[in-house]
């Protein structure tokens, strides 16, 4: 492997990792606040992708601009899901939570199929295959843009959770639901906020990946799995951890494909995942919950 091949893989890994991070952040917030593993996460992301696609084809809104519409809409969608469905099973048996989100995922993806048919939708922008050249290395324009947006969103989210009252209430709920309730925090409102934010993040990730990927109703499941790996790797409930986890997975996939082989790179991802679980079960940046 020459240096330029290595650098090329490293850079694309970091950039694609940014999108992964966003998916992971959404999942980690939902889990942190509600202790619910959201099996419908990828399907929520898929909704964001369709939203982006139709905003682009019908109204010619650029995907990177359209996130200002996607984020609030997806937030409402997430809050709706939480209020109507998820809220009813908080604190019940964990198997019911798993099952409910699986069921919701089936409903979301198959409704999408009825609405949009199962055809692949491709969003083509003028920059879909555009790149900057840095010596021998080429850097994807859309991925760079999405990486920058990811960084900005993550920073805003971090600030929101750390510095605002609502953010602190959400964090308090995540730390100890009952104590938060006793302190007068409206826990169910915080859960709704958290699920809304989680869905908005997943939807944004969908929007950001749309110009370079493709869209179909079942597209979500692969990303759900990826989100699981990222969140556990980074530590469940930790936003910085999920960011780190996403970028690590991006790099491992990308560099692994050239250093080992493209068919074993996913095994490598899962192996690292297990290794982290064994050595530090709480994840890279999570608090121990053993």
């Amino acid at each position: 492997m020459t240096l330029s091949v290595f650098l090329q893989s490293l850079i694309s890994g970091i950039l694609i990792g940014g999108v992964y991070a966003l998916i992971g952040i959404g999942l980690t917030i939902i889990f942190g606040v509600m202790r619910v593993i959201n099996f419908a996460h990828g399907d929520i992301m898929m909704v964001g992708m369709y939203l982006t696609f139709y905003l682009f084809t019908l109204f010619h809104v650029d995907p990177f601009v359209s996130i200002v519409i996607t984020i609030p809409l997806m937030f409402l969608f997430g809050a709706f899901l939480q209020k109507v469905f998820i809220n009813r099973i908080i604190g019940t048996l964990p198997q019911n939570q798993i099952l409910l989100t699986i069921g919701l995922g089936l409903i979301i993806s198959n409704s999408a199929m009825l609405a949009f048919t199962s055809d692949y939708k491709i969003l083509t922008t003028s920059y879909s295959s555009g790149s900057f050249k840095l010596g021998e290395i080429s850097i994807s324009q859309p991925l760079t843009a999405s990486f920058i947006i990811t960084v900005v969103i993550t920073a805003i989210l971090y600030w929101f959770l750390m510095k605002t009252d609502t953010g602190q209430a959400i964090r308090a709920t995540a730390q100890d639901r009952e104590a938060a309730q006793l302190m007068g925090i409206n826990v169910s409102r915080m859960s709704m906020l958290a699920f809304g934010i989680g869905a908005a993040m997943a939807g944004t990730a969908g929007a950001l990946i749309s110009p370079t990927y493709y869209i179909f109703p079942q597209v979500g499941s692969a990303f759900t799995l990826k989100a699981f790996v990222i969140t556990v790797l980074g530590g469940m409930g930790s936003i910085v951890g999920a960011t780190l986890g996403g970028i690590i997975i991006g790099i491992v996939e990308s560099v692994g494909a050239v250093a080992i082989s493209s068919d074993w790179k996913d095994v490598l991802v899962f192996a690292i995942f297990l290794l982290v679980l064994l050595v530090k079960p709480s994840g890279l940046l999570g608090r121990s919950r053993m």
Binding site: P94, F228, V229, T231, V267
Partner: peptide
């Protein structure tokens, strides 16, 4: 021996990961 070090949701996710490793290994 790997997954039972973990509890609750962690165990769920670890079990998924291991099954995926098995699938990919068979594939490869």
């Amino acid at each position: 021996s790997i997954c039972f070090r973990l509890r609750g949701p962690y165990f769920v996710l670890a079990s998924i990961a291991v099954a995926e490793i098995v699938r990919l290994t068979v594939l490869n």
